[in-house]
């Protein structure tokens, strides 16, 4: 083992070591969001479980929080239930929703039904840059959309009306008192 070879080797390993240390010690550790496991979705129960799953989807699988955040890539949704009433009444709204829940559900599947002024794609205020989250890469199921709506209702400070009923989803006037019944399931 000659001295020259040793020098070059030490130099190379020092460079690699410097990069490794920089990446693992200096750069802040950001742990990527764990993908939501299928089992967790199936065992969710109760209104609070419903909402917390909705929050998980909002921040994780649904990728909503990538844009709907304080950076302002997309409108904030903290008051969406109240806001949706004025949106449905807006002249350039061309969807078919009658209630806020219907509006949110519609917006998730066809985002361009109403485009908030200033948030269209570049050069076209009539088209939303948001993808259809019930299909494609995000692909939320109907159940997952309900979780998200429940979470958005809680965020807006209104009563959560979307809960799970036998065999499907109901948008009726079920209220928070169903917690115990839900929990039994």
């Amino acid at each position: 083992m000659n001295k020259r070879f040793l020098k070059v080797t030490i130099f190379s390993i020092a460079v690699i070591g410097a990069y490794t240390l920089f990446s693992s010690l200096y750069v802040p550790l950001i742990v990527p969001e764990e993908p939501l496991s299928v089992e967790a979705v199936d065992t969710a129960s109760g209104v609070e479980g419903f909402i917390s799953l909705g929050e998980k989807i909002f921040k994780g699988k649904g990728a909503c929080a990538l844009c709907h955040n304080s950076v302002g890539r997309a409108p904030l949704l903290e008051n969406i239930v109240d806001v949706s009433v004025t949106r449905i009444a807006a002249p350039d709204y061309h969807g078919s929703a009658k209630t806020s829940v219907e509006y949110i559900r519609e917006s998730l599947a066809s985002p361009s039904a109403y485009v908030v002024p200033g948030y269209g794609v570049a050069g076209d205020e009539k088209t939303s840059p948001m993808p259809d989250v019930t299909a494609g890469a995000i692909g939320l199921s109907r159940l997952e959309v309900d979780y998200v709506i429940a979470y958005l209702q809680r965020l807006s400070g209104v009563d959560v009306t979307v809960t799970r009923e036998a065999g499907g989803i109901d948008v009726s006037g079920a209220v928070e008192t169903t917690t115990s019944a839900e929990g039994a399931r």
């Binding site: 802040p28 304080s70 904030l76 400070g157």
Partner: peptide
């Protein structure tokens, strides 16, 4: 060291003193 926001955005509604308060 952490990423902390000093004045985070408030909720739009909160429950206090036994009633719902609309922050807006």
């Amino acid at each position: 060291a952490e990423l902390r926001s000093i004045h985070p955005a408030p909720p739009s509604k909160m429950t206090a003193y036994g009633k719902r308060i609309d922050m807006d």
